[in-house]
Amino acid sequence: MADLQDISNEKIRQEIEEFVENPDEIERNIETFARVRPLMQEIAAALIEGDDGTVDALTKQALEDKIDALEIMDDGLIAAMGVVGIKFRDNYIFVPEVLACARAMKAGMAYIEPILSASGVEPLATVIMGMVKGDLHDIGKNLCIMMLRGSGFNVVDLGVDTSDDEFIDAVEEHSAPILGMSALLTTTMPNMGKTIEAFIDADMRDDVKIMVGGAPVTQEFADDMGADAYGKDALECVAVAKGFLSVQA
């Protein structure tokens, strides 16, 4: 079993020591970062800092050093987003800081994505995401999308104010096994139930797992609406999506 001191990067060690409290998560993060090469740790440290310029430069450097794109994504970018997600969930950081981390992730992925696409690396699954009809408040949904993409999912973002037909068409078109809906307003929350009913009417409810979330949404509400799962934040959203596929979160 690896030890914290096996991680060469001081910033990563500090982050785990200071912000990760759950024993399983401590162990998982130590195991992850202790086995990855120092440059991946540097990329991760820069991403956790929200330093997009450094992530950009280091990702470019890693590719020039012939490090595999998948390794950079998994061991640098995604590993870092795991720590970011924990800090956000536990209120050590807030949305502005997460947005800066997402920007840094994007800077790295700008190099990685074209390589992965060209090499035919398969995503875990396709997830359709959208705000329900009448709702334009998409920041939570965008954070979920960022975390899902960072965790290996292909995400089709339908944006805001999404109609039942748009959800149904997207699931059909992409043969997506997972649909995520978000609502911020109490006025638009019931539209989750209407969309789920539309899937039943279209005889497609058994084809797709549906997860819901958003500030006013609760587990109880999700159950009432007939959703398969509820996620209270972006980290849970990823866990739920992986749970649908029986992949370890």
Binding site: G134, L136, H137, D138, G159, V160, D161, L185, T187
Partner: peptide
């Protein structure tokens, strides 16, 4: 603006 209908609040198109 998105002024919406009877059953929803109006919203700013923040995008």
């Amino acid at each position: 603006m998105q002024w919406e209908q009877k059953d929803n609040w109006p919203t700013v198109r923040m995008r």
